[in-house]
Amino acid sequence: MSNDIAFLAEFADGTPQRSALELAAGAAQLAAQSGGAAVALAYGAGAAGGAANVGAQRAVVLGDEDRPAVTYAAAAAEAARDALVLLAPATPNGRDIAAVVMGRLNVPAFGPVSEVDLDGQTLTAKQATLQGSVITASQPVDGAATPSVVLVLANTFTPAEGNADTADVSQAPAVADDPLGTAKVVESHAEEQAAVNLEEATVIVAGGRGVGGAEGFETLQELASALGGAVGASRAAADAGWVPYQLQIGQTGKVVKPSLYLGVGISGAIQHRVGMQTAEHVVAINKDPDAPIGEFADLFVVADLFSVVPKLTEEIKRRKGV
């Protein structure tokens, strides 16, 4: 075992996902504590060309093709075998790979965490469990094998600047006889509305059933644009077809951790809450003074969204001078 901190660096269309840059920053932080190196495990379309630039000291290219993330998992396990910690994004792809690494190497897994610390070689991971009703700190049991696999929520670490060409890049050997590698995409369908990557947004304006329809979401988009953020939604709004499911926040949607979450016409059901409860600031606009979201928002505005949202957009544009 080394003191290295490995992290998953996913690429799409030749560019690293924001999660790769965030985890690079996290790995560098932990590596400073452990005395090891930050090692990128890069995969996906364009990974070979970009691996040197995500901010790691070393990079291992697991593969360079556009194929399901899980097909890179066995190679990830082999490449992470000697690391102390493996950081993975708490996204479906990140979880698939993390799960396989846990199962293949028989190592402990934690998360999704919003805080992770190393004291020498002892890892402590903090996470909200049981729908956020408790915050637990966990550690590997004595004698557990390494690496400890840690799922990390988006926006837990802030990407560093100036990452060009920092890493020595090598190619991971192919894994023979790997059934996990047999999954393949046989059809791909793009929806009309191109979706943004919600996990990357630091400001999110989320709309729910109260928004009433696709036109209402255009009003929210204007507010989001004024704030420099993105639009998200409750499952009710996605189920109604007003927005694509890619925008759904919650237990079965995206788990987001923006600095500002502004919920509009959303009641704040537990399944929604678990997807946004780690947001730094929560503002809610709801016409029902007893809506559950009023119990955990930092600022609760009891009002009709259709009258307040356009005014708020105007006011923000005015203050920003645009």
Binding site: V107, V134, I135, S138, P140, A144, A145, A297, L299
Partner: peptide, 22 residues
Amino acid sequence: ALTKVTSAEPPQAKPPTERIEN
């Protein structure tokens, strides 16, 4: 288990919700 919980606490108490009403 390969993991152990070392502490469990209620989430940090937040300041009370500010309200804008009427």
